[in-house]
Design a protein around this nucleic acid. Structure first.
Lengths: 252, 252
DNA sequence: CAGTGGTCTAGACCACCAA
DNA sequence: TGGTGGTCTAGACCACTGC
């Protein structure tokens, strides 16, 4: 028995576990509306705030979502698999495919595209790009939306001096994306590092991704190095942690 | 101005942001005790439950920790950098510059070591290991503790038929670990896949890792394939999401 | 023992949604 | 307009810490 009789769990955790079991058993289908929190609170015999605590926990896991003035709903979204290491990376650069569409996941819509030139970079970006004091960057930012749900924000930082007056500063950088353009400039990326951490979203990130404040996000910082070992681009991605499975495949 | 006058944020978020700024400014050093939540609530002019909401948010980020009956403390732990792709497998790539600071793999203490033979595997494990109906696995589980703080749980699943009566079923599998023993058996791992997702810890995981219920965990499932493409081991890791930076480096 | 964090309650007000 | 989730309050009881 793994019932843990001695260490009685608090009510909100027991209710959360019970709700989780009910949802995984399939009593409610994806997208279905749950009873209101007052109804549920009465059913479970607890105060509504306690009920909210349990529901909020399930929401932070991505199992349910809430709409103000409307109700609680079973989350219907299927996670996206992102392949961090493209299978045949280099061959795809000239082929018109972007890094993203090389992944085996659903094609996203891209919106909130913005290119800003001559920006002052954050300190940790400037350090990795080895910029001189006061040197500027070009920032390409965008949002990815899958099946109507915003799932990722991304911001690419490139040295302004490197990309000025090239297609990289255009909203559409042309076939092969910015890596193909960097190759045109003699700075083809040959090596990448992806650093991953989990954070609480900033207020702006929570808004743009329509996330509850207690949902965590996955931060992936991808640094591209050219043949001389110079960092030529940093792509900082911010993903809804409930929407993604990251995937890395490599040899021994 | 990015003050967001129109969309007034709730008090607990504004207070959390203010506290975050105070902590990052360094008013309190690592390990320092903060004023009690009642004192803080009075200072900020809110009810203590509202104050708790703000503190709990910072705790879920790993910025502060609480000890029942004692107080709130500034978290002193420096994140660990885990290299998903072993150094030996990487060429002599220079440039140590990284986006986020974290210490490289401090040597952990390993405790709660357990080897269980003849176990029935979870369904998703059996599927990847391509086990026949009813076929058993050997489960090697352990906990990693760094500087007195439990940071990761790991459980390796191997086909029982493959490892029976080998050193792999011993608590100490000998020099080179279980991969060397798999090589001895003619099943040296030559390819790996790591799948990463973020979850809320189970009650058992929260207990074994001493995590607050609202702290998320990083799940890494590492599958090892031998030369014939057979999955010979799955290592399911569960990490405190505030304790780790994952790092993958690879060529184009 | 006093003080602390953890849980829980009852009730209030607001913004938002749907009929 | 009534119901819903989101926020906030005041206060209670408990378990634990540390003197």
């Amino acid at each position: 028995m793994s019932r843990e009789l001695g260490t009685a769990q608090p009510k909100y955790l027991r209710i959360a576990a019970e709700l989780r079991a009910i949802l995984e058993r399939g009593d409610y289908g994806p997208g279905d509306r749950l009873p209101g929190e007052n109804t549920l609170a009465a059913d479970f015999g607890v105060a509504s705030l306690t009920m909210r605590q349990a529901l909020a926990l399930l929401r932070s896991e991505g199992l349910v979502g809430s709409r103000k003035g409307s109700g609680w709903y079973v989350e219907a979204f299927r996670p996206i698999r992102r392949h961090g290491i493209p299978r045949v990376a280099r061959a795809q650069w000239g082929s018109g495919k972007t890094i993203w569409s090389a992944d085996d996941d659903r094609a996203p819509d891209v919106d909130q595209v913005n290119v800003a030139e001559g920006e002052t970079p954050p300190q940790h970006i400037a350090a990795v790009l080895e910029l001189a004091e006061g040197e500027a960057v070009c920032i390409r930012s965008r949002r990815y939306v899958v099946e109507g749900r915003p799932v990722m924000l991304a911001a690419s930082y490139l040295p302004q001096a490197l990309v000025a007056d090239t297609a990289i500063t255009e909203a559409n950088p042309g076939p092969g994306g910015i890596y193909a353009r960097l190759a045109d400039l003699g700075h083809a990326p040959v090596r990448f590092r992806e650093e991953i951490r989990v954070r609480v979203p900033s207020a702006e990130e929570a808004t743009r991704l329509s996330l509850p404040a207690d949902r965590s996000v996955i931060k992936v910082a991808r640094t591209a190095f050219d043949g001389e070992g110079r960092a030529v681009e940093i792509n900082e991605m911010t993903m809804d942690s409930a929407a993604y499975v990251l995937d890395y495949e490599f040899g021994a």
